[in-house]
């Protein structure tokens, strides 16, 4: 069986593209001034994450990431942006305040990133001895229905309570004319 020429280079290029998409989306989500651009950045970041999950040998999770995050979570946040007015008026903060909080946020995130990144670069990662399952969708379904069936039922209960709670909270202020 012959392999496609330069397939290693092509796969590595696609991987670099996926990582760049994730990082760029995250930066847009955190740094943009208008909230709607931040939501779009979150969408782009989730698309990149779906690609990373695909490279981690789980196409099922890649599909779920696009379905739940891009399809449900981001659209719900956009509804929130439409119903409230989240944009901050320009120049509402004093300059020293702005610099103080920006510097503090930058310091905290830089320290966290440096610590976690150095830990993950120098960690003694050892490969496992053997795989007990192949990680396919069939294996996921089997363990969802056997080992994790209780957690599966509980998460459906949590989602149900969240829906009811969201309806009750958002409805509380509305009165009939």
């Amino acid at each position: 069986m012959t392999t496609f020429p330069f397939s290693d280079y092509i796969i590595t290029g696609i991987f670099c593209l996926v990582v760049a998409t994730t990082v760029a989306g995250a930066l847009v989500a955190a740094l943009s001034t208008r909230i709607i651009r931040g939501v779009t950045g979150l969408m782009i970041c989730c698309l990149g994450l779906a690609g990373l999950y695909y490279f981690l040998n789980s196409p099922f999770l890649a599909l779920m990431e696009i379905l739940i995050y891009v399809g449900a979570v981001c659209v719900t946040i956009i509804f929130g942006v439409m119903l409230a007015e989240p944009d901050e008026p320009a120049g509402s903060e004093s300059r020293s305040h702005y610099l103080l909080w920006g510097g503090l946020a930058l310091l905290v995130s830089a320290v966290v990133f440096a610590t976690v990144a150095s830990l993950s670069l120098h960690g003694p990662w050892a490969a496992p001895a053997e795989r007990v399952t192949d990680g396919s969708i069939r294996a996921i379904g089997l363990s969802l229905l056997t080992t994790y069936s209780m957690a599966f039922e509980l998460i459906s209960l949590v989602l149900f309570v969240a829906i009811i709670g969201a309806l009750v909270i958002a409805r509380a202020g509305r009165t009939k004319e």
Partner: peptide
């Protein structure tokens, strides 16, 4: 792991820096 650490750091930055709840 480094990409995940970067996502965590960017998320922390946004959490401290943003002034509105949706951000």
């Amino acid at each position: 792991l480094v990409v995940a650490a970067l996502l965590l750091a960017v998320g922390l930055y946004g959490l401290i820096r943003r002034r509105t709840f949706i951000g």
